[in-house]
Every structure is written in structure tokens, then in C-alpha cells.
Design a protein around this nucleic acid. Structure first.
Lengths: 220, 220
DNA sequence: TAATAAAGTTAGCCATACCTAACAAATATC
DNA sequence: GATATTTGTTAGGTATGGCTAACTTTATTA
């Protein structure tokens, strides 16, 4: 059973939509939207992937991963995050630049390379966005994620990861002067729109509710 | 004009057959043989590549690279050899293991990554097989290659590169206890089959003419 | 509940890139 | 120079993975 680059992309997309965004299962349209292709193409592909026992599916239903599909997806996530770490630490890629190239690199097939890369990087536990890197056996703990938006005025926290890995969002975070492990204090929360005034590194900035929801923190 | 991974493979293959093996131009059958695909497929592909101005070609003639085709091929060679160097130096890949994975990695598109990789490696001039790595502008000097077979009994030399990068051949070289920059002395040459007795590192070994022709040396 | 909207599927088409079989051209040999 | 042999091309088929248009099913809402 030959898994193509495309099938790998589908598996990772399903994994992402199912696990990270916390839907239980994904619809063909959502998946199509996420992958930037037509729902019709997804319909056809999912049928083939079902034949290969990579996804759970029945017509007009929702898509889920089988155990084998899940295992492959986790391996891809591991590769992706190891490459991101490599690019960030050794190739001078900023955290908003790593994703695109890592997306290409994750399709390289070489168990030895991944083992060696992991070793070279010193078995990192998280990637440049604070996301957990699954171990060689595909095991990992998804940490309970608290968003900045859940805090109260007066609370202090440390930035541990981001919900949105898009270059646009990450550049904005960088522009604000924030990075992983930045220490943040919630100064005020505006009831009417959920925006907050936060302080960090001697700065004070106003951020939207959406921003606060896109940033995960650890309470201090 | 979108260059696919397959077209890249064709370009590199043509480049290799034309430059490295010193034919002026390649026939479709030779190319098909080298790529492990049918001549018919090559015929069709070359027609498309001609339309994209990547190759010089006319029906029933021989294939050559255009300037733009050549430029792309050289960039691929550069990427391939930089990745080989990386795999060998930092990922503990032996010189017989690097080719396959580098062949995958050379298709990664990211000018920044290649610049950074080159920098990370300290702008290496040669890869783990002793082959020259073209610079960022695609410039490189093909050194005059002297094979071990050209030497006379009593001559001394140093191994600088190999003609054959196949795992089978490289493993044999390693097994003999030879590596790049090994110092070799030609002890005897047998007229009838061109085989030679060579000595190096206190060892004495008999090698075939074909072997001697597959190893490039620098006279001492 | 019936009409409408949203979501999903099927059919038929395109591009890439491979294949085999049959044919055509070029080269080599008698 | 005629006939093999080698070399190369064309035609028609397969698989992957996209697309649009038309249709069906499910969900929503009046």
C-alpha cells in the first residue's frame, strides 16, 4: 500500500481538523476548504482512502481517521515539527518562515534521517511554535491549553504556544514584541468586545479577543 | 512555467549523461535506461520539455540541454551535493547511504534553505564522493579527472573522487579500506586484464581494471 | 411539513506521467 | 544497396488527483 504525498497531506489535514480544532470528525467541505481544493475532489479521494483503510467514512457522513491513518498522521506531525525545529535553530528561519519548508520536508522518506535529526536536535520536546513533538513511537501528551482570553485582569502568565501558525499571525506576534516564554500580565479586560490591555517587557498593548484566544499561556 | 519533480529528474539525468559521462548528447533509449523507464515515455516527455525550452531536440536526434535547462540542472546538482554533505557530516550517513535521501531532498524548493545550508556547512567545495559543488551562481570548475587505471607501476597517488556513486560500488571501496584522500601506490599492473596490485595503509590488494577506472586520483 | 439552503456525490473532463504494442526511421551488416 | 538490427515515435491504455456542472441527500427554517 503506497501512500502518496497527496494522501499524506489529506491524513495530516484530517488529523489537524479533528485533533487540534477539536471537532470529532470532519466534513468533506471543511476538509476541501482547508486543503484549498474542491469538495468533489475530496469526496473522490476519501473513497480511495477508505479502501486503503486510512479513514473511517460512510457516504454523507463525517470523516475520521482509522488507527493506521492516525499513526501515519502522527509520524508526519513529528517529522514536520522536527524539521521546523531544525530550520529555526540551525537555518536561521523565523517562526513564521518554518512552516512552508517543513511542509515539503515532512514528505521525505527516511526513518534513519528522522532518528538522526531528532538526535542532532537533542530530542526536542516542542517545536518553534510551542507545539509538542511526538516521540519515535508516536506517543505524546496533548497539554491542556489555556488561552490568554481565559485569564482575569491581574493574572500573570507565560506564553507557551500559539493556536494559529500562519505567517501573518506569527509576524504580528513578533511585531508586538512577544515570543515563546514571554511573561505577560493582563491589565484590563473590556467587557463589550473582550479585548484586553496586556503588559510585558515594560510594554503595554491592546489586543483583540481573537488575538487573546489565539495565544496559549501557562498561568504563573 | 512550472517545473515538476519529474522534469527535474529528467534534467538532472540529461545533465549527468551529457556532462559526467562525456557524451555530447543523449539518445532517448540511453536516457530511458538511466531513468529506469520506457523509451516511449521519454519520447513523450522530451517533446514537452522541448516546448518548455528546457532541451534542444529534433525528432530521431539526440537530446541536449538548453541554457535554461542546464542552469536548472546545475542548481539541482548543487542542492544534491550540499544535502549529501549535510547527511554525511551531521546525520551520520555513510557515503553509500547519502545518495538516495539527497535525491529526495534536492527537490525541496527554498532558496533560503540552500543558502543557509551552504553557510551552515561552511561553503563546502566537494561532497562526500569528492564531487565539486557548484556555487550559488551555478559556477564550478570540472577538475581534470585522472583515473587510477591511467597510472604506471610505481606511481603514487591520493584518492580524490569516485566515478560510480552506487551503494554497491561505494560499499566495496569502503570494504577495501579505501576512502577519500587515501594514499595509494601502484605496485604492479597485469597486462592481460589491466588489473592492478595496489598498496595503501600497509595493505596490498588486487583490483580489477574496471575498479581502477572507477576511482579518480591525484598524482603525488 | 414543505420549501430552501447547505453539504456531499457522481459524471465527465483535464493534466501529468507512466505503460505496452505497433510502427517508422536510422544505422549496421551482409 | 538490400536487409537486419537498433533506435525512436505514435497510439491507446492506466493511475493519480485535480476541475466544473449537475444531481442527491441532509439540515434548516419558515
Amino acid at each position: 500500500m503506497n501512500i502518496t504525498k497527496n494522501v499524506e497531506d489529506y491524513l495530516k489535514a484530517i488529523y489537524y481538523l479533528v485533533q487540534e480544532l477539536e471537532f470529532e470528525r470532519v466534513g468533506t467541505n471543511q476538509l476541501a476548504e482547508y486543503l484549498g481544493i474542491s469538495p468533489a475532489s475530496v469526496s473522490v479521494m476519501i473513497k480511495k482512502m477508505k479502501d486503503k483503510h486510512l479513514v473511517d467514512y460512510q457516504k454523507y457522513g463525517k470523516i475520521g481517521l482509522t488507527d493506521s491513518g492516525h499513526a501515519i498522521a502522527v509520524k508526519l506531525v513529528r517529522k514536520h515539527r522536527l524539521w521546523e525545529t531544525f530550520l529555526h535553530r540551525h537555518m536561521n528561519f523565523s517562526w513564521d518562515e518554518v512552516h512552508e519548508v517543513a511542509h515539503q520536508l515532512e514528505h521525505i522518506h527516511s526513518p534513519k534521517l528522522i532518528r538522526e535529526l531528532d538526535n542532532f536536535l537533542g530530542n526536542p520536546k516542542t517545536d518553534p511554535h510551542g507545539d509538542v513533538i511526538p516521540d519515535e513511537d508516536g506517543n505524546y501528551i496533548i497539554p491542556t491549553k489555556t488561552s490568554l482570553a481565559e485569564l482575569q485582569a491581574g493574572n500573570q502568565c507565560r506564553l507557551v504556544s500559539v493556536k494559529d501558525n500562519s505567517a501573518v499571525f506569527l509576524k504580528y506576534v513578533t511585531q508586538l514584541g512577544l515570543a515563546l516564554s514571554s511573561k505577560i500580565r493582563v491589565e484590563e479586560i473590556r467587557e463589550f468586545d473582550g479585548s484586553m490591555l496586556i503588559s510585558y517587557d515594560g510594554k503595554k498593548e491592546n489586543v483583540s479577543k481573537m488575538f487573546a484566544e489565539s495565544v496559549y499561556v501557562e498561568s504563573l
